[in-house]
Every structure is written in C-alpha cells, then in structure tokens.
C-alpha cells in the first residue's frame, strides 16, 4: 500500500546509529526465544521450587484467573448470534429458527466445526 510520504532510506539511516548507552559486552544468554507453552510450564516450575520460600496464599498469575461462571449459560444461535432455542441433533449447532436450520442442515463439511470452534465446542483430534 502506497501513501506514506516518508523516505524509507532516511528511516534506515536514522535508526542505524549505534546507541551510546548500551553495554555491548553483555554475555548473551543462550535461549531467548521460548514457545508460549514452555513459558507457562517454566513459571509453574519456578513457583513450585520456591514454594517454601513464598508467603502462603500469595498472588500469582494462575490464581487470579476468574473462576467459571455459576450462572446458567445463555444459548445463542451459532450462525446469527440471535437467541438459540434449538440445537441440531446431527452436528450440535444451535440455531434460531426454521430458516437458519436450512443452513445448519446443509452445512458444508468442516464448517460446522468452525462454527463450534467459536465457542470452543469443536471436536479436537489429538
């Protein structure tokens, strides 16, 4: 997309100045990129190993997560988002009325799972 009136070379030049404030002698730690899963696992491990040193009932990332709702969940149509009074027996999609059911009934293979994925109700093969 064009439209920017900024010279790309000027930006490169501006940003290629070596920073005066930086310590380049720092020994680079070896692993600086970690997948998301690893981060959570590491954090849990860290908390576990230091458990005896930590205050009881201390706040951490995991225990401030909001608990599941205790109110009855309302049901909505998966296709339109309207009130979902009915559920298709064949693929589990919720739908609003007869007309939406024509879509639900004849939905292409796999698309029903995409709709279910929106509310985390899809089948995940492992």
């Amino acid at each position: 997309m064009a439209g920017s009136s900024v010279d790309i070379n000027k930006v490169i030049e501006e940003n290629s100045v070596i920073p005066s404030f930086k310590n380049f002698n720092r020994k680079q730690p070896n692993r600086r990129v970690k997948p998301l899963k690893q981060i959570t696992v590491d954090e849990q491990k860290f908390l576990k190993t230091k458990e005896d040193k930590h205050k009881p009932n201390s706040i951490n990332y995991f225990n401030i997560s909001s608990p599941p709702s205790i109110k009855p969940t309302k049901k909505y149509c998966d296709i339109t988002g309207l009130k979902g009074n009915y559920q298709s027996p064949s693929n589990g999609l919720r739908y609003h009325n007869n007309e939406v059911y024509t879509i639900v009934k004849n939905i292409a293979q796999g698309v029903d799972q995409q709709y279910l994925e929106l509310r985390n109700a899809n089948v995940v093969l492992k």
């Binding site: 997560s65 608990p67 709702s69 205790i70 109700a121």
Partner: peptide
Amino acid sequence: SIAGLDQA
C-alpha cells in the same frame, strides 16, 4: 461463554 471461555 459466548466465545467458549469458561470464566465468569
């Protein structure tokens, strides 16, 4: 729950 999140 609309987005399948099991939280209040």
